[in-house]
Nucleic acid binder design. Structure first.
Lengths: 216, 216
DNA sequence: TTGTATTTTTAGACAAGCCTAAAAATTAAT
DNA sequence: ATTAATTTTTAGGCTTGTCTAAAAATACAA
């Protein structure tokens, strides 16, 4: 139905739309590691296919159709990630690249059966919600640890950085999905956060605290 | 590593090599539903990459490297077909197209884990052997029913035509992998074959007998 | 508000992979 | 052994998706 490139653009635009209403050419170029001129080309094509709203120099947003397509790609990506971790026992930091390829397998029937096979999971291995076959899902209501008050207490429930390096670090510190933590102190000097977890204290940098999400 | 088009050409050449040592441009064009001129283009590229032996007007054969790549694609195809039938409960006539897409997912680690997850199956749902992670597998030693003698008796073990139409027909007649049949008679007029299966007689056309393989 | 910096678009080019039409090589037939 | 038919290759062109370089539009700053 859609080409690989088209799907990747729609996914990128969807992701960037989380942050700001309208997405700029340069943002898309950065996200896809391509050049702004290539992006402009593709935006013209996507607009022609009614997948995005686009007027020159004004940035873009997804149309309803475009958003449906994007959500579907995300559904496929997250279901395959779940499969790779739960059934094939990959680690959470190993699955992103594979899922990037697998998300483009087009059969809807396949994805629905995969969903059923795994018992209709609602979150992927990184805590992100998995849209159902209708495209419905509730956005996570999570906060970066860096933004909560001292003495706040919550469950680690997601990450903002999906890079292998970050996930491996978390794994090593046992800062994994489901763990209960309390924020003990935020050191003013460099915003290092002191956590309590399993009755032990643990320091994490401002960057880590920024990318680690908790449910209060 | 290799593009989609390259992989499809290698697979086609491998398949056609089963029949004749050297494969012609036109055969490849027919197999891939493309034009001879396009094939010539690609053959030049594949030869440059040392994946095939090619001299103008002489047809092609796979190099050792080319064959390794082709066998690997076939391994991936057949493992995904097995997965789709055994785990997601698709029917054997529904999986070919999906597997055509899935076979291009590149991770070797993924395929090896999938193999393990399914218990290292040795045959796909159509009876074709699945190469192991080293690329080793024994070719089926099967005969089309049309070629065996009257009173011969054997187990249905494979098909030569993988089309949905043919597989659905077989399913309807219960002519499925593993069934024991005896050839009762070959009617001289049109080579219709009369089989006995489950103590019942069954007539199949010359075409069907040609595409249905048994182990004696 | 006028000039400068940044962002975005246009123009032109390129590789991959396909096509048609025509030329060249091979094969088959008399 | 020629001629005819077939197969294969070449030549030139098209689309998709990318690039660089330059022009145009917008945003920012004094």
């Amino acid at each position: 139905m859609y080409t690989l490139a088209e799907e990747n653009y729609l996914k990128a635009i969807y992701k960037l739309s989380m942050i700001a209403e309208n997405v700029s050419t340069n943002q898309i170029a950065a996200e896809l590691a391509t050049k702004a001129s290539s992006v402009t080309d593709m935006l013209r094509k996507l607009a022609e296919k009614l997948l995005i709203n686009y007027t020159r120099y004004q940035g873009v947003s997804l149309t309803q159709t475009g958003e449906k397509v994007a959500v579907n790609i995300i559904r496929r990506h997250r279901l395959w990630e779940f499969f790779l971790v739960e059934k094939l026992h990959f680690k959470w930091d190993e699955v992103h690249e594979m899922a990037e390829e697998m998300e483009h397998i087009s059969s809807t029937e396949l994805i629905d059966r995969l969903d059923e096979f795994m018992g209709f999971p609602t979150r992927d291995p990184h805590g992100d919600p998995i849209p159902d076959s209708q495209g419905n899902f509730k956005q996570n209501d999570l906060k970066p640890i860096s933004t909560v008050d001292v003495n706040a207490c919550g469950i680690i429930s997601g990450v903002r950085d999906h890079s292998s390096a970050f996930l491996q670090y978390l794994e090593k510190q046992s800062l994994t999905i489901g763990k209960k933590i309390t924020v003990k102190e935020i050191i003013a000097y460099d915003n290092t956060v002191v956590l309590q977890m399993d009755n032990k204290d643990l320091q994490i940098s401002r960057d880590v605290a920024n990318n680690l999400l908790i449910a209060l």
